[in-house]
Design a protein around this nucleic acid. Structure first.
Lengths: 178, 178
DNA sequence: GGAATTAAAGACCATTTGGTCTATATATCG
DNA sequence: CGATATATAGACCAAATGGTCTTTAATTCC
């Protein structure tokens, strides 16, 4: 997964994969079939990791606003400095392959939906608790947050400072909460 | 430019370039040097186009809030349906090359800065005209908007409906204006 | 210990990559 | 027209691509 993450699909050559997996050519093909299948596996793992992370951050036992803070803080962390420059396998894949690879596109689309659903759920709970500012609708606010964090990943490729990203994220959340 | 835009740098092969430019191999190399230089030219043109478009949309003679509306509407348009699935040369390049190509990284970084400056300027004018909601700071709001529209481009790769994107953008701007 | 299974190493393959170069055709200009 | 500059088509190149296959080494099992 790491090597696709760092370099993207096309730029990752077989030798890179062999070095990363410490497998021989034969074993790799026996285990995964081909490069494309291996990539899909890596992408699935990346998506699963991201979703379980969100499930922890936005867990329903927790204060929803705290959960959203943690969720945003996580993105700020991953889009700052060296981590930010490494980028995001999901966003890179969306831009590189989503238009031409149906397998990939399905996964990307369903990930965004799943993410939005989780954020919307947290926002709904916040609203029920009276923590949302007037006129904030969970569904559209979730759409905003999803776009925002994915945009953070893009802008983070050119490494803005962590403090600026954090301030931006704080400013956005401030528009939503009471 | 078009072919890099649709396919990305690595996935664009010489034959694609020849077909697109209607040049022979020899002429292309005589005119542009190599693939990388040609790509840089395409990227520069894409950036210049985007910047002048923003200069029109956010022109200072215009009502700043209307300008911001037009700016967002443009992004909604370009991230919906077929246009959305085509993606964005800038974002795709940021994810594919920014980490490994200094020439590219400089261009991407300076584009984001220029974009943010233009949006911040429009927000400042709006604030001076008393059109901004309480507590909205032009600088950080500009950071939010930049991330948001770039996120739109990412999410737009899996073609959400235009009306949903428009509603999301409206909801965001509503949080800023009075 | 010796037979059988598994995995590693890397030779090998056709195709494609970015890039160069020569021969031919097409204009241009006097 | 005839000489010269220009651009075309495409042969050609070395290197790298994804993928297969054989040979050798290591492990497992009885």
């Amino acid at each position: 997964m790491g090597v696709f993450w760092s370099r993207g699909y096309h730029a990752t050559a077989l030798p890179d994969l062999l070095r990363a997996t410490k497998l021989s050519r034969g074993s790799l093909y026996a285990a995964f079939g081909d490069k494309h299948s291996l990539f899909l596996r890596a992408l699935d793992r990346y998506i699963a990791d991201a979703l379980t992370r969100m499930d922890v951050e936005l867990a329903s036992r927790r204060e929803p606003v705290d959960g959203l803070r943690a969720f945003l803080a996580g993105y700020v962390d991953r889009t700052s400095g060296a981590k930010g420059r490494r980028g995001c396998l999901l966003v890179a894949t969306a831009m590189e392959l989503a238009g031409q690879d149906a397998d990939v596109e399905r996964r990307i689309a369903s990930f965004f939906e799943a993410m939005k659903a989780r954020v919307a759920d947290a926002l709904s709970r916040a609203k029920a608790a009276g923590k949302l500012a007037d006129g904030v609708e969970p569904a559209s606010a979730a759409g905003i947050l999803v776009c925002f964090v994915e945009g953070l990943r893009v802008v983070g490729k050119t490494a803005p400072t962590r403090s600026k990203s954090q301030a931006t994220a704080d400013a956005l959340l401030d528009r939503f909460i009471r």
